[in-house]
Simulated scan of single mutants.
Amino acid sequence: MLSNSPVYLQVREQLWEWITANSLDSQARLPAERELAERFNTTRVTLRQALGQLEAEGRIYRSNRRGWFVTPARLSYEPSRDVGFTRYVAEQGFVPKTETLTKVLTETPAWLADQCEMTAGSPIYHFVRRRFVDDRCLLVEHNYVNPLKCPGLLNQDTDHSLWKMLRDTYQLAPAERKIEVCSQALVGDEANILNVNQGSTGLYLERLCYDENGDFLEFDREFWLHDAIKLVVNIDG
């Protein structure tokens, strides 16, 4: 890097070279900021700018109250595949885990009724789950499921693949899907659950699914860490 570049970028270069030279593994914890500032002969302010630059690039990440860590390899994510989270994570050599935070039978909110052709206030299942890859929480997921299609779903174990359960227990599968993806700041409960600062960069994905009869089946809202995944689309022909 040119010597006339901003000091924080020079420190960023030195820091990344040090991480690479020491072959720090995925999720390896970096030394404390004070130690790093001394190591690279810079101020804490400049060091934090350098760390922030590497964080924006997805090379390192910060966990509140725990410090800085080397970012794992991104998960390849193909949202159009009818494969549950557990399976596609395991297929890529990672260890998946899911925790159900809440699951309730509630009323369909007006904003969702407009999208899924349900009546506002009608019953709907709402699940909130957080999902891990190699013990790192990457995703907060809200699942809204049509209870008429799968009675008793609240009594099932939802710490595993919801889609596998719908398929195996209720013989349900999505026949039509609408998927949208955009960048979005992580705020509120989602930021707290992911243990990141309010306003951190994230990736938002929503998926609206209908069954083979054209009836609403499930609406999924996903809040991902920005450095967690890369979207993959395979097109035949």
Rank of each mutant, 00 (worst) to 15 (best):
T86E: 13
F85L: 05
T119L: 09
C116W: 06
G84N: 07
R74V: 15
T71F: 02
E99D: 09
P96G: 04
S80W: 12
L75Q: 00
D82F: 13
T119A: 10
S80Y: 14
R87D: 15
K97I: 03
Q115R: 15
P109S: 02
T71C: 15
A120V: 07
E91H: 15
S80T: 15
P79S: 11
K103M: 05
P109T: 03
Y88M: 08
V104Q: 12
E91I: 13
A90I: 05
D114L: 12
T98W: 01
P79E: 12
T102W: 03
A113M: 01
M118V: 04
V70H: 03
T102R: 04
A113H: 01
V104H: 05
R87S: 14
T98D: 03
A73W: 02
E107C: 02
T86M: 12
P79A: 06
K97F: 06
L105G: 05
P72I: 03
T108S: 01
T102A: 09
W111Q: 07
T100K: 04
M118C: 09
K103P: 00
V70T: 07
V95A: 09
A113K: 00
L75P: 00
Q115D: 12
V83C: 09
Q92R: 03
T106Y: 03
M118H: 03
T86A: 05
